[in-house]
Design a binder for these strands. Structure first.
Lengths: 347, 347
DNA sequence: ATTAGCACTCAAATCAATCGAGTGCTAACA
DNA sequence: TGTTAGCACTCGATTGATTTGAGTGCTAAT
């Protein structure tokens, strides 16, 4: 018994139909809707073979067939035809990137929103930055009579501001000056690097403004920690409720549950096989409560060894070809922009 | 027929029981669980009266009673006893605030998370800032050979950074210098205020770095827009799925739908009657799909005329007294910290 | 005024009957 | 030998009848 051409056509018909309707597909349906030139009886015979080979499943004895994980796997690996995004969709995605170049966390947040809006699936993006992040610039800017804005920028195009309140503020020039000194001392250091030694250096430099020391260190720690943290963006979780396979609240809830566990999702996105585009179908992913879901992940590279992952999560009968084109398009957009930045940095 | 003491005791029992179980409450249940010293028959008579007065409803002829919106209203206005948070909960909430003073958007995000974690309801926070936001400080910081960090701070303790990429960067000193000039020109202006006139001033000052002009203006616009935008934080939406009243996926979905419409929620939170704490029960709120929900909102004042709102959304049978204590505690925490800041600013 | 007692109501659970989409198998056919 | 018409069969889903039980309202006795 071999996977001849006809069997493949039938399998493809089943998968297409099931992706569209979420209902088990019967032989008569295929005979009528897809003009394969053979009768439903013949199709039945072939389907029986396909089931024996493990590509399709009969949920119960007198129902139609649905694709198995293996069936989807074959589909994804061999049968699926690439879909081109139309101009409108391409522009939509390109716009998201080009409008948010200057702030990477906004970019990722908007990317997640855009993808889930376009696909109606759930989007998860991780934005990892290598550990050992170093301080690049620290500045103090006078704002009010008694507020100072502390700006901390680190490796990896990351920056964060902190508002410091002071009762007896130094003059503007002094503030700049103090900022410069702090910068001179801390620049280039990672958090682990900031020893008692450096702290006492700071204390010396700050002199009469020693009350700034504590909030300063706190802010530095927070900034580095949050730069080193896997930044994480999730969007479109509610889309899950739209799929009939999750019309059981219990199922929906267990997925929402999983979606709130950041560590679990980070793991899910990093289950990878070196390939840029990875497709995990049903039980292939390790999260038990998501065995009816597929996750398609793509990595985008920020140059060096920093890379992030975009994952799209939907029911196993998701529209793989659409998702893949969206991912490809988006990764390409992001990489074009970020490589651009990186090349410049390397020069 | 008057609302005598006994009727009130019975109503209270019904509401307490229904809040706990989400099941219609019968006369026998009350007779057994709450030792009111009267028989179920008497309770039945009283319940009949309470129904006639509109405080309770019989979902169908032979079922127990559930509180009506009016019943909850009476409960909330008169019957409910205040609940004190325990030390642990207080500390938990205080910590959230004290750990996030320096960045207001983080503070609100974390506040929303904390409240929904503590109450198991859904939390919505708006953080409105009066329009006509003015630029307070603009600075350029050299970062790399070819990246410049543009820092823009506005009224209302708001600031945002933007990464600028340049091919032929000026020297560090020049960068500072240009930043200062830009600052001198733009400081104190609102977006509407930036006329052609000012732009040409800028163009003059920038001279050979005129290529900075466009990204600069774009960043200024973005920052002001996002400062003036009602910042918005939503957390714990998935909690909705845990309540039996929303075990119908359709209902859950329609609520999730509403929760994604920012404008609608902003309206919901601003439906107010001047009072600091507002409770909208069931149909009292204007959103049709949320007629089975109650929303409790509290305003926190940032001094002057800037104020934000924290809203907690749950089923009408939510634990009003818990939610109110959490809100009071949190508003107090936030105001203490922010008033502190504001007093200093006014000095 | 309260309560025991009882008839009554109605949603929910249970069960049987029916329906129909779909299958597998067989025999006939090209 | 591969294909197909035909038919018996399967089983989930739907429908309807029946039972159950929590709860009520009313009445008459206390």
């Amino acid at each position: 018994m071999s996977l001849n051409d006809r069997k493949i056509k039938i399998l493809q018909a089943i998968i297409n139909d099931y992706i569209a309707t979420a209902e088990p597909v019967g032989s008569r349906t295929i005979a009528k809707k897809y003009s394969l030139g053979i009768s439903s009886a013949t199709i039945r015979n072939e389907m029986s073979d396909l089931e024996e080979m493990g590509f399709i499943i009969q949920p119960h004895a007198s129902s139609g067939r649905i694709p198995s994980d293996l069936g989807y796997r074959l589909y994804v690996d061999c049968l699926m035809q690439k879909k081109e995004l139309d101009k409108e969709e391409q522009l939509f995605l390109q716009n998201i990137v080009s409008k948010n170049i200057s702030q990477i966390d906004y970019l990722m947040e908007e990317t997640a929103k855009a993808i889930s809006a376009l696909t109606n699936y759930t989007t998860i993006i991780t934005e990892p930055i290598p550990i050992g992040t170093k301080l690049k610039q620290i500045r103090l800017l006078p704002l009010d009579q008694d507020s100072i804005l502390l700006v901390i920028a680190t490796d990896g195009n990351y920056s964060k501001n902190h508002m410091l309140k002071v009762n007896y503020p130094p003059s503007e020039d002094r503030i700049f000056e103090i900022g410069k000194r702090i910068n001179r001392i801390l620049q280039g250091h990672s958090w682990e690097n900031i020893t008692e030694n450096i702290i006492s250096l700071l204390r010396n430099e700050l002199q009469e403004f020693s009350f700034l020391l504590e909030p300063l260190l706190l802010a530095v720690e927070q900034t580095i920690r949050s730069a080193e943290n896997v930044q994480f963006h999730l969007s479109g979780a509610k889309n899950i409720l739209a799929f009939p396979e999750f019309s059981d609240v219990q199922k929906a809830k267990s997925i929402f549950q999983a979606l709130e566990e950041k560590d679990l999702l980070v793991n899910l996105l990093s289950e990878r096989s070196g390939s840029d585009l990875q497709i995990l179908i049903g039980n292939e992913n390790s999260v038990q409560s998501m065995k009816d879901c597929s996750v398609i992940t793509a990595t985008y590279k920020l140059g060096n060894n920093a890379q992030g992952t975009i994952g799209i999560l939907g029911p196993t009968r998701m529209d793989y070809s659409q998702v893949i084109s969206v991912l490809n398009e988006m990764v390409q957009n992001i990489e074009t922009v970020l490589k651009n930045i990186d090349q410049k940095n390397d020069s």
